[in-house]
Structure formats: structure tokens, C-alpha cells
Design a protein around this nucleic acid. Structure first.
Lengths: 261, 261
DNA sequence: ACAAATTGTGACTTTAGGTCAATTATTGAC
DNA sequence: GTCAATAATTGACCTAAAGTCACAATTTGT
């Protein structure tokens, strides 16, 4: 009995080790750097064993995507529980999205990669469904906030606009903008200096466009962002500051090396 | 002299044949269906010759993306010349974007594929630059319309918002939404029944959020869309209707076959 | 202690991107 | 028209990596 449990546990553990290793490799050396042989070497099992867990390479990637989406769901749910008016809670989700992108670049990178059509060509239907289910769960967290806005009277949507469509818009805008920012270093030349600030502005304007009260110019949403960072995401916020700080230190170090100081 | 010209012409012709064939294959059998051997067979040249044109498979795909972007630029430029107020011209570009997605599904499919990170990992910097230059040209067509809006006094952006950021938002929103619609057939379950209609609504709201006059409720933009379709994109509009019609006919035929009538 | 069942292994197959020495075609001088 | 020089084309070959499977090792139940 407990043997079965142990086996199962070992199975689960190994699976998550495979995924952890795969994520490392993929982040370090890109999609083409990820090979089954390398994973096998890293986890110290043979290739055949990996194939006992995943029927093909693509499914490993999709599984990474599922893990990523799950983590995002965690942040989103915490954000949606922020105490405040519906649109403030929406802003909280915006904070969660930005934190996620900045704090977990590995996850973010994988998510960017998973939009590759070539992966979906090979992954099994069931694994695809798993991912889409996770994505839907994440989106429905947001949809709930929109519904609360309608229920609370702060948002009135015309009959031909479903709450889901609002989320669809925010979701598309945010994910594509972050993706572009990550993959296109020329964005700055293009006039978009700080993609994260842009996205904050753009999502606000979009929500304003739906007349979700209080509108941007009726309320200090920067203040809400600060509150969310401190009250809901205190731990993550600290971590982000550290990361930014150590990053800056590293850049300084590099600069010193270059200038020979 | 003319020999050199002839050679060059032949070179260009063959290159576009390679791309045409590659596009066909990719649309029919996906990224994994596209192999150098298949292209070679289809154009009746050897593999080595293809490598005289393109240093790797990925560059072929990027080249397809450049062709696609070029075609989109054509539509966008025509749209931006629509006679009317700045925001009407913006609406015209929206029409162009939707027409493009619906009328050239092959191009659209390729564009979706090109967002794959694995392609960029291998393509040369110069080819990447070419694509990004094309993308920038396309976006700057739109930026010009935003600038006209500001010049004409219909749009006032706060100092901290660049015209490019507005375009960045519209661009992200639209491309991601179309992409999701193309790749995720479950969107309907998710509450987004007609992605194209959703995008029309969302982009309007976003532009409303920037207070670009006349606002949606001050002006009949559906009417503008109709005018753009008739005046600027008459040919394309006809073609789309035909496509929709023949598609419907085909569905009817299938239904007949199934029901045995 | 041992047979049965489960799990793990890595040599092997296949596929496809990429290379290059040899072949074929083109050019231009005489 | 001939022929050497140059350029273009070819496809056999190389290599990397996904995926398979017969055999080996281990675990389980009796």
C-alpha cells in the first residue's frame, strides 16, 4: 500500500525534476538547445525513462506551460481577493500580471515559446486540453472580477458585449505587448521606451473605454498599485526589488570591468 | 550586361518560387511538414540550390513573413489614405487589418507561425532586421494617422504618452486576438463568439479611452466601415464575400452529403 | 529463494537539416 | 567554333536528435 504511494511519489518527483531541468535548458539555450539526451544526462536517467513520462518532446514543453499557467493562476487569485471596488481589483490583477512577467522571466520565456505552432502540431490532444483548461481557469478568475463590477453597478456593458470579451481584450493586449517587449529589443527605437509602463497605461485606457468606474481621472490608481504591492504581494515585491537591485549592481560591475576601474 | 540582368531576374524568380512553394507546404502540412527535400522536389531543383538562396530553413520562414508584412503594408497604406477625419482613418486601418486576416489566411497563418521563438534562434541577424524593418514600416503608417489626429486637434495625448504607444496597444491587442482566434477553437466556449467583432469593439473602446474624437457614441463608425469597404477596398470586399459565399456553399454541400440528400 | 511483473537502459533506426567535392553549364577571349 | 576559366548545380554524404525496443536490472508477491 505505502509502496504504491512511494512509487507514485517517486514518479511525480521525477516528473517535476524532468520539467525543472527542461526549463533550465530551454531558458539557457533556447528551444533548439533542448534535447532528450541532454535532459537524460541532467537527471541521470536514460532517455527511455523520460519517454515513460512524456510521449514526446513537445509534451514536455506544453507541461512547462501548464506549470507556468498554474503559477500565474495563483498570483491572479490572490490579486482578485484584494479588498476594494471592482475596478481596483482589476488593477490588482494588472499588478499580478506585471509581477509575473518581471519576477519569473523563466516562466515568462517558456510561455512565450509555447505559443509556437510547431509545438501544438505534435502534442497530444489531451495535453493541449490541459493547457487550455489552465488558461481558461486563469481567464475566468478575471472574468469573475468583471462580473462583480457589473453586479456592483460600476460597470455597465451593452448587451452585445460579454464580460469574457473584456477579459479577452485585456489578455490579448497584455500578453502580446509583453511578448513583443521580450523578443523585440528594438521596441525602444519604435517609441515604446518602457513596455511595462505602456501596458499599464493602455489597459487603463481600455477599461476607461468601457466606462468602468471610477475612471482613471476620478481615482488615483497608482496609489492602488502601491497598496496592492504592499498588501497582497509584499513578498514578491521585495523579491523584485532585490532582483532589480542585484541586476543594477551587476550592470555596474560590468561597466567597471569595461572601463577598467 | 543584359545577361547579368537575366541571371538576376532568374534568381529573383526562383527565389519567389521557393517562397511560394514553401508557403503552400507550410499552410498545408504545418511547420513540421516543411522540409528542404520537399521544397527541392516541388521546384525541381536540388537541395543545394535552395541553400544558395537561403542559408537555412528558418530564413525561408522569415522571408515568408517579410512578404506577408509587405502585403499588409500595402493594405494599411491604402487605408490610411481614406478621406476623412483622423479617427475615421484609424477605423479604416482597422478594416484593413481585419480584411487582411480574413482574406489571406495563408499569410495570416505564416505570420502566426513566425512569432515562434525557435525560428529567430537560427535566422541571421540581417534577415531578422529586414523583418523588423518591415514591421516598423507597417506600424509607422499607423503612427502617422495618430500624429495627424494630434495635429488636427481630435486627439490630445498627455506628455507621457507617445503616439507610438497607442499604436503599440492597438497592434498588440489585434495581433494577439487574431492569433488566439486562429489557434484556439475553444474561444467560443470562453465567451468570445465572434473574435472579429470583439476586436472591432475592443479597439474602439481603447481608442475611446484616449478620448480620440469623435468618440464611438458621437459617430456611426459602422457606417465608416461600410464606406471604407466600398470606397477603398471594393475589390477585396467582393473577394471576401465570394469566399464567404463559396465557403457556405461548401458547408451546405457537406451537410447534404452527410444527410444523404 | 525464486518466479513474475515492473521498470530502466542504451544501442539502434529514422528523419531531416546542412555540407561539399564532383559535375555540369555559362561566359568570354582568341 | 574552341577552349580555358568561372559560376552554378547536384546529390551522396555527414551529423544531430527524436523516437523505439529487445534486453537487463530491479522490485514485488509468494
Amino acid at each position: 500500500m505505502s509502496n504504491i504511494n512511494r512509487k507514485e511519489r517517486e514518479m511525480v518527483e521525477r516528473e517535476s525534476r524532468i520539467l525543472a531541468v527542461a526549463r533550465q535548458i530551454v531558458v539557457k539555450d533556447g528551444y533548439h538547445g533542448l534535447s532528450m539526451d541532454r535532459i537524460a544526462e541532467a537527471i541521470e536517467y536514460s532517455k527511455g525513462t523520460i519517454y515513460n513520462h512524456f510521449p514526446c518532446k513537445e509534451e514536455i514543453i506544453v507541461s512547462l506551460g501548464i506549470e507556468t499557467m498554474e503559477r500565474r493562476i495563483g498570483l491572479f487569485q490572490r490579486a482578485s481577493q484584494f479588498q476594494g471596488r471592482s475596478r481596483e481589483r482589476m488593477q490588482a490583477i494588472g499588478v499580478a500580471a506585471e509581477l509575473f512577467a518581471r519576477l519569473y522571466p523563466d516562466h515568462f520565456f517558456v510561455e512565450h515559446m509555447i505559443r509556437m505552432s510547431s509545438i501544438w502540431e505534435k502534442a497530444s490532444q489531451s495535453r493541449r486540453d490541459l493547457f487550455q483548461a489552465a488558461e481558461m481557469r486563469c481567464m475566468s478568475t478575471v472574468v469573475e472580477v468583471v462580473r462583480d463590477g457589473i453586479r456592483g453597478g460600476d460597470l455597465e456593458l451593452p448587451s452585445y458585449v460579454a464580460p469574457e470579451e473584456v477579459v479577452f481584450g485585456l489578455w490579448s493586449l497584455t500578453s502580446a505587448a509583453y511578448s513583443m517587449a521580450a523578443s523585440n529589443p528594438n521596441l525602444t527605437n519604435l517609441g515604446v521606451g518602457e513596455p511595462f509602463a505602456s501596458v499599464r497605461e493602455l489597459t487603463r485606457r481600455l477599461v476607461d473605454g468601457f466606462q468602468w468606474r471610477p475612471l482613471t481621472d476620478e481615482h488615483n490608481y497608482d496609489h492602488v498599485i502601491e497598496r496592492v504591492l504592499n498588501e497582497v504581494f509584499h513578498f514578491e515585491f521585495e523579491k523584485l526589488n532585490e532582483a532589480v537591485y542585484s541586476n543594477a549592481a551587476q550592470i555596474n560591475k560590468q561597466a567597471e570591468t569595461v572601463t577598467g576601474n
